[in-house]
């Protein structure tokens, strides 16, 4: 599910800032590979739990990168559409686009190496949890 690397401290910090700014007391995000729970407590430090239950994925199956939460989908490069540059090779750490939640842009990582074949969401549209964003053909 997750196209954002939720184990990345920078991502968690950005998300925590966004939640605090929005007056939201916490958030729980689940994806097939794990779970992130942020509790923003007034007067205390935020509590953050990340647990991973990642399962190996068959290399032959195309992988759909889905939105891990609701937000506005932004493609990776404003000057040049991601869709115009497909197909192309990506590494697991590559940022494919962003999810805008309020003033915060959350990077959407590929999560696995392969050929990015399709962009499945229109840029600047509101996407919900689990909405498909990209398709990657994994490379072994």
């Amino acid at each position: 599910m997750s196209a954002i690397d939720f184990s990345d401290p920078t991502t968690i910090a950005l998300l925590t800032d966004a939640l605090t700014a929005a007056g939201v007391s916490g958030l729980e995000i689940s994806w097939p590979g794990g779970q992130l729970r942020i509790v923003v407590a007034t007067g205390e430090e935020a509590r953050i739990n990340v647990s991973s239950t990642a399962q190996p994925v068959s290399a032959a199956q195309p992988v759909v990168v889905k939105a891990p939460m609701a937000g506005h989908f932004c493609s990776g490069n404003s000057s040049r559409s991601v869709a115009d540059r497909l197909p192309r090779s990506v590494s697991a750490a590559d940022t494919l686009g962003f999810l805008r939640v309020g003033p915060i842009l959350l990077p959407l990582c590929a999560g696995r190496a392969g050929i990015l074949t399709r962009q499945l969401a229109e840029p600047d549209t509101l996407v919900g949890f689990g909405d498909p964003l990209f398709e990657i053909e994994p490379q072994s």
Partner: peptide, 15 residues
């Protein structure tokens, strides 16, 4: 994690 998730509902309202 959905209909009882207060924060997800508030974020959806904001978005």
């Amino acid at each position: 994690k959905s209909y009882l998730n207060k924060d997800a509902l508030l974020l959806a309202a904001r978005l």
